[in-house]
């Protein structure tokens, strides 16, 4: 059993939009693409302290980390390995992750966005103050909709597919 051929990526795809981090096993937005897609022309300069783009690269990695953990929050722990495999080997999920990360970057640039959500539990777009901190605050309501549309909010996978557990995370 496998992911359908029309959706299958034999190996995680790195291109001009996103690069697959083989150590952390997640996609990270390319900096130039992120600036172009979000329209945040001064993104690098805004958070740079020493004039380099190190901080911006760190932000790309953080956004990736947050988005992946958000996606994981919808699944049970017993699916974690399969989910990591699925996100790496599905074309449509690659698109979903890309959209979600771009949206989260836009959200982050709005009066604090992701960072405010991270430390206070307030989702700025939903305009509600959440007394207990929840992971949903770090992603905008558009991000939540992307998750639902792509089926990432479902508890089960839509397809039964095999994961080579012997070589898990080794060949990809």
């Amino acid at each position: 059993m496998a992911i359908p051929t029309y959706d299958k990526l034999t190996l995680p795809l790195s291109d001009g939009d996103m690069t697959y981090n083989k150590e952390k096993h997640r996609y990270v937005l390319d900096l130039d693409y992120a600036v172009y897609e979000t329209g945040l022309a001064d993104l690098i300069e805004e958070i740079s302290i020493d004039g380099t783009n190190d901080n911006a690269l760190w932000l790309m990695d953080l956004v990736s980390h947050v988005c992946y953990e958000y996606i994981r929050s919808f699944k049970d722990s017993r699916f974690d390995k399969r989910l990591t495999y699925y996100l790496a080997h599905s074309k449509s999920m690659r698109n979903a992750i890309k959209k979600l990360m771009v949206d989260t970057l836009v959200y982050t640039n709005q009066e604090g966005g992701l960072f405010t959500g991270y430390v206070t539990g307030i989702n700025l777009q939903e305009a509600k103050n959440i007394t207990t901190m929840k992971l949903e605050t770090v992603v905008s309501m558009v991000g939540k909709q992307i998750i639902l549309n792509y089926g990432l909010g479902e508890r089960e996978f839509r397809y039964d597919f095999d994961v080579d557990m012997e070589n898990y995370e080794v060949t990809w």
């Binding site: 059993m1 496998a2 359908p4 089960e156 996978f157 839509r158 397809y159 039964d160 597919f161």
Partner: peptide, 13 residues
């Protein structure tokens, strides 16, 4: 319908 499109769909068995 969408759950039965492929033979590998989770609902097929």
């Amino acid at each position: 319908k969408e759950h039965l499109e492929e033979e590998d769909s989770f609902l097929y068995p």
